[in-house]
């Protein structure tokens, strides 16, 4: 059964189309990611799913209930963590948790085992006002609060934005644990590398869904030969490399360069020669690699941006 069913969904703000004919199904027990750059329409989609906004056309069913007519049945069954910090800064960690448990008609005690993983890290600060926590801690508290009534579906809007790398990894580990407790998760993020953590991913840009697949499935859809190039100071040759005749696209990937070739006959040798010809000297380390989901996303996002 699909817990979230998004069908032909469109939503405009004035002349701006925030969402354009979106179709997504999230199955029970899934950790589903909504990946896209800022302004792609992620928050609008999430607010429609959480019954907080109404679509212009199309519909969303959550747990089988329509978000327009049956919003009351959906509310209370879902957990929601908005993109903005949505706790009470003047209440302590413990008070926030107790309050949100109470608001949803639950107690911290009865669902403690569900949030133990998260709350374990917060326990030393339980008497500190929420406003005085670090960014990562705030998000962990918000996650605990969204989870404390054991919702069937947990919906998170960019939980890792503005959080340091370590806390980001910890948050994803927590989401993984929560999923294993049987809770369906629908999470949005602007970080492409986080797509790998999800069971399935929808790639969204400018209000359109560019594809829904598993991270592995996305990677396999990459149609070209891909080379990973490492050389000292290679970024300063970026313009010249992009002007090469077989270059579909070239972009920095960490400290390395990813080179997408349009020529199926391309080999490491032919590429090395081309790079030497444009003046790249010294050791050049080139190997052909399998594309990852990020390579696919970069390709899709660039093409979609060029189309429109």
């Amino acid at each position: 059964m699909s817990y979230i069913e998004i069908s032909n969904l469109s939503k405009s703000y004035g002349k701006i189309k925030a969402l354009n004919n979106v179709n997504i199904n999230v199955d029970a027990g899934e950790l589903f990611g909504l990946i896209g750059p800022d302004g792609a329409g992620k928050s609008t989609l999430i607010r429609i799913v959480t019954t907080l906004l109404l679509p212009d056309s199309g519909y969303v069913n959550v747990l089988g209930y329509n978000t327009r007519e049956d919003y009351k049945k959906i509310r209370g069954e879902i957990g929601y963590m908005p993109a903005v910090f949505s706790l009470y800064s003047d209440l302590t960690v413990q008070e926030n948790l107790d309050f949100f448990a109470g608001v949803f008609g639950a107690t911290v005690a009865e669902n403690y085992n569900l949030i133990r993983g998260v709350y374990h890290m917060l326990e030393p600060f339980k008497n500190r006002p929420a406003g005085k926590l670090s960014g990562g801690m705030k998000q962990k508290l918000a996650l605990s609060c969204a989870l404390i009534h054991r919702p069937k579906v947990l919906i998170l809007d960019e939980p890792t934005t503005g959080v340091d790398a370590v806390s980001r990894r910890e948050l994803w580990e927590l989401l993984y644990d929560i999923k294993h407790q049987g809770i369906t998760i629908f999470v949005s993020t602007a970080y492409m590398d986080e797509a790998k953590q999800c069971d399935r991913v929808a790639l969204i840009q400018k209000g359109r869904v560019l594809g829904v697949n598993s991270p592995h499935g996305f990677a396999q859809m990459f149609p070209h030969k891909l080379y990973d190039v490492y050389a000292d100071g290679i970024w300063s040759f970026l313009d010249k490399i992009r002007a090469l005749d077989t270059c579909k696209s070239a972009y920095m990937f960490g400290s390395n360069l990813h080179y997408v070739s349009t020529d199926d006959a391309e080999t490491t040798e032919t590429l090395t020669n081309k790079l030497h010809q444009i003046g790249l000297s010294g050791d050049v380390d080139i190997k052909q690699i399998n594309a990852g989901i990020e390579d696919y996303f970069i390709r899709q996002l660039t093409e979609n941006a060029e189309l429109s």
Binding site: R47, L52, R75, P82, S86, Y88, V103, A146
Partner: peptide, 13 residues
């Protein structure tokens, strides 16, 4: 303004 209303709205309150 704080965004807490979003959470209160989706609660059974």
């Amino acid at each position: 303004e704080m965004g807490t209303m979003e959470v209160l709205l989706i609660s059974p309150l």
